[in-house]
Design a protein around this nucleic acid. Sequence first.
DNA 1: TGTACATCAGTGAACGCGCGTTCACTGATGTAC
DNA 2: TGTACATCAGTGAACGCGCGTTCACTGATGTAC
Lengths: 231, 231
Amino acid sequence: MPRRDKLRQEMLNDIKAAARQQMAEGGTAALSLSGIARALEVSQPALYRYYPSREALVTALIVEGYNNLADAMASAERTVPQTNYGSRLLAAMLANRVWALENAVDFQLLFGNPIPGYQGPEDITTPAAQRVFSVVLNILMEALAAGMLKYPEELREMPDNLRVSMSMENDGQPVQLPPEVVYIGLVGWTHTHGMIMLELFNHTRALLPDPGAFYLQEAKILLTRFGLTTN
Amino acid sequence: MPRRDKLRQEMLNDIKAAARQQMAEGGTAALSLSGIARALEVSQPALYRYYPSREALVTALIVEGYNNLADAMASAERTVPQTNYGSRLLAAMLANRVWALENAVDFQLLFGNPIPGYQGPEDITTPAAQRVFSVVLNILMEALAAGMLKYPEELREMPDNLRVSMSMENDGQPVQLPPEVVYIGLVGWTHTHGMIMLELFNHTRALLPDPGAFYLQEAKILLTRFGLTTN
DNA sequence: TGTACATCAGTGAACGCGCGTTCACTGATGTAC
DNA sequence: TGTACATCAGTGAACGCGCGTTCACTGATGTAC
């Protein structure tokens, strides 16, 4: 890579890092190009060499955020023996919480209030978002194929208005997922998401001495509900 | 009430209404005194007759929001016969979702990203927040007293780091709640909160054809987990 | 290896905008006697 | 009922600030021959 291109890559990363730093201090709404320019000691118009607008920078941060979260979950899950589906799911769920707490502003960017005046290009952000969910769905699909996944009774005859539909890319091949698998994924996602959100914004502080232990316990209970064990 | 005082009350309400209107259009971060002044066709400094600062207005909106949510849940719950604890809880849970969807910005104000530069006076906001949770806890306490609440197995011997502690005012008397009851409340709260948050910010749109049906189903399953029935 | 040109990074000045807050002031509404 | 005074609502002007974006320009880095 030519020298100039390398410097450009570094600058792109520096801008994103400064943006995150800024949001970490003043919240997601505090993201401003002028602040970034100040932090990097360049003039404000210089940033337009790298991102055509503030919106474009936000989009880049969001996409990178989804990818980082998905990577964190995937690499946590990969440390567990492949056939131990319950433990793999547990690892992914725990990684989700840890990532959210350690990257609180990124998490807010992805799952918090919509950014004022920002209308993200969905064709770019939604595939990135699906990557996160796919980490979990992949494990569920493997568990299903191995006959280790138990459909709970209430799903035996799933009413039409609950039939979740989703297809997933697997080695480039679009695969239509069984509604039950997506449903199970959603149950887990909604519950863990709620725990994370409430902990992140301090709503459970006065109640829960150890939110991590609570999270762990509920995650395990979730797994047993679908016939999966961990150890 | 003297005429001037009545006008003052109306103005206080008009300001809050305009603030909500403004946030509904541009998100919670779009709340600005100048915008409110414009909408009400008064000069900007005039607002300082009513709220000493922007912060004070935000605090008022938050407190009112918690109270409105608690009222919505409480009045939904009260339409059900008192001894039908499961149905009362279900009504409260459903009211929670409906209120969040119908008052999306208020909900964001209460449970979304912290407001930039705003450090709320916790001695004012936390009692208001507790009122919401108390609606649910009260029903659980009554169900417990009636012997209708089933502690699930995993709570038989609750480890210390899961012992949630909370006391509640009941007719002015502070009552120490059994950890198990708070725990059950938390399980319900975290799960419903996650479903609401993800639906509110459109993260489940591509997956769930009918988020309301999903919510209802999960709420019912939650109740059966603790031995409560609905009908 | 050297030259001529194209590409790119970055600057300083400027535009137009909205924001929260303070201040001295006017005029209307209420209160005490 | 009338008068004198205090309280309150609201105004216009001003302060100081930060923001995103555009523009014409300079100087450095890379490329073609």
